[in-house]
């Protein structure tokens, strides 16, 4: 079905690339790590491995003749960009870490401050992404399904967290939620809920920056979702809740998953807006990127990259899992 194929294409474009690619990257990263432990010069090996990876792709492409020209040229550019922008910088993380011994690495990544920051960073990012999935869906629903004055304005405003320098967002949020701010005065003064300079503050900042990702991934799918499905459900006797729960939401799962993954990935890497509102209290409200920056400022490059490597590996694993879930759900509903 053309429709299904289109859907799948859209889902693939929005996804984080094939799981195979992720798995390949992890493997190469690990191989390089171990190779460097043996005192080999790692960079040459990495480049060789990556080149092998790329050549394999080109060779596979060469085997078939294609109707559309330009395939090999665009593939070559794609691989080049992948090298220069993503793979080589990321492998530098592992190369740098490799300067430390195993015990040094372990003590760097298992320091109490680091462990507390992992918990906060991953916990708050997952929670923020979950919150964004719920509210992002409602927002996307409102602006696609209803016509109201100011709809276009709301639609435009959603992109603001994309465009705003994150430091500006951080300062604005801090001003609002601090004890003397508009919200903070009420929440902290009246209800005793401390948001700024606490873990809750981190969550608020991460929700702020992640929201557009969910809205912008769900919105086009909702727009394409024909009202016919809802009408069909209603004509079969389903009430509104049943229609949403059994018909609309399942159709949105892939987009919601993508939105979740993107909001989560963004939240994990966020620095600017969080450090203002978090207060950066050791063991309480320090996020992992802050730990890395702190180590860099202390000229502990290897320690910084060791923690970065932990983040990288865990993020890879989580995104891989989400990707697999997407592939599974797409295969379940859209095979033809």
């Amino acid at each position: 079905m053309a429709e299904a194929a289109l859907q799948q294409g859209v889902a693939a474009r929005r996804g984080f690339g094939g799981p195979a690619l992720w798995a390949g990257l992890l493997l190469v990263g690990a191989a390089v790590f171990f190779a460097s432990r043996g005192g080999l010069v790692p960079s040459g090996l990495i480049l060789a491995l990556y080149a092998l990876f790329a050549l394999l792709g080109v060779a596979l492409a060469k085997a078939r003749s294609r109707v559309l020209p330009g395939f090999r040229l665009t593939l070559a550019i794609t691989i080049l960009m992948l090298f220069l922008i993503i793979l080589i910088p990321l492998s530098a993380v592992f190369i740098n870490t490799a300067q430390l011994s195993w015990s040094q690495i372990w003590s760097a990544i298992s320091a109490p401050r680091a462990v507390a920051s992992y918990k906060l960073s991953f916990g708050a990012s997952l929670l923020a992404a979950a919150v964004n999935v719920v509210f992002g869906l409602i927002l996307a629903w409102a602006i696609t399904r209803y016509r109201f004055p100011g709809r276009k304005l709301v639609d435009a405003l959603i992109d603001l967290p994309f465009a705003l320098p994150t430091a500006v967002a951080g300062i604005a949020l801090t001003a609002l939620y601090a004890k003397n701010g508009w919200f903070g005065a009420f929440l902290e003064g009246q209800l005793g809920i401390k948001i700024a300079f606490s873990q809750l503050g981190v969550l608020v900042a991460l929700i702020f920056i992640g929201l557009p990702f969910v809205v912008r991934t769900v919105q086009p799918v909702l727009e394409d979702l024909d009202a016919e499905y809802e009408e069909a459900a209603a004509s079969l006797g389903a009430n509104r809740a049943q229609t949403i729960w059994r018909v609309v939401l399942p159709a949105l799962y892939p987009a919601l998953l993508t939105g979740f993954a993107m909001a989560f990935a963004r939240a994990l890497g966020e620095y600017g807006s969080v450090i203002f509102i978090a207060g950066n209290i050791p063991l309480v409200s320090e996020i992992t990127p802050l730990i890395i920056i702190t180590k860099l400022e202390q000229y502990d490059y290897a320690g910084a990259t060791a923690i970065a490597a932990v983040m990288l590996v865990v993020s890879f694993a989580l995104l891989l899992a989400i990707n697999a879930l997407q592939v599974w759900s797409a295969r379940r509903t859209e095979r033809s």
């Binding site: 009408e231 459900a233 209603a234 004509s235 389903a238």
Partner: peptide, 21 residues
């Protein structure tokens, strides 16, 4: 009466079958 209460069977031009079921 709402479509739910009319108890009519409606077959859509493009069938509107639920893809995930």
């Amino acid at each position: 009466a709402h479509v739910r209460e009319r108890n009519v069977g409606f077959v859509f031009q493009h069938y509107a079958l639920f893809r995930h079921m």
